[in-house]
């Protein structure tokens, strides 16, 4: 545990923050602009994982274990969420035989 924390601290904190913000923005742009629902699910996962990385880095720098516990919670919740999301996707695919998000336009205004 001590070794890992010191290994993480070899790289300056700013680099972690920049990396995570970049990953988060890639995920965000993916959710906003991609039309394929499976890719959107992947982008949401990317956003969650960038947050995990960020919290883990902060936790090592503050030498505070609660951040690492938080990462576990986020991982569990993300797994549960993707399970539900994929099953919703399968249900949708059965009804319209497509995973294109543009089909979601029956309900508006």
């Amino acid at each position: 545990m001590k070794d890992i924390s010191s290994a993480i601290q070899l790289i300056p904190l700013e680099h972690y923050i920049l990396l995570c913000v970049t990953l988060f923005s890639i995920g965000l742009m993916g959710v906003l602009f991609r039309r394929n629902t499976i890719i959107i699910l992947m982008c949401i996962e990317l956003m969650f994982n960038s947050i995990n990385l960020l919290v883990a880095a902060f936790s090592a720098y503050h030498s505070d274990p609660s951040g690492q516990v938080f990462v576990f919670f986020v991982m569990i919740v993300a797994a549960a969420e993707v399970a539900v999301g994929l099953s919703i996707l399968v249900m949708m695919k059965r009804n319209v035989d497509s995973v294109d998000i543009n089909l979601l336009n029956r309900l508006k205004w």
Partner: peptide
Amino acid sequence: EASFKYFMLGSFATA
């Protein structure tokens, strides 16, 4: 559609 919209925007907001 309601379910998928809710799921997608909900997890986006959670992120």
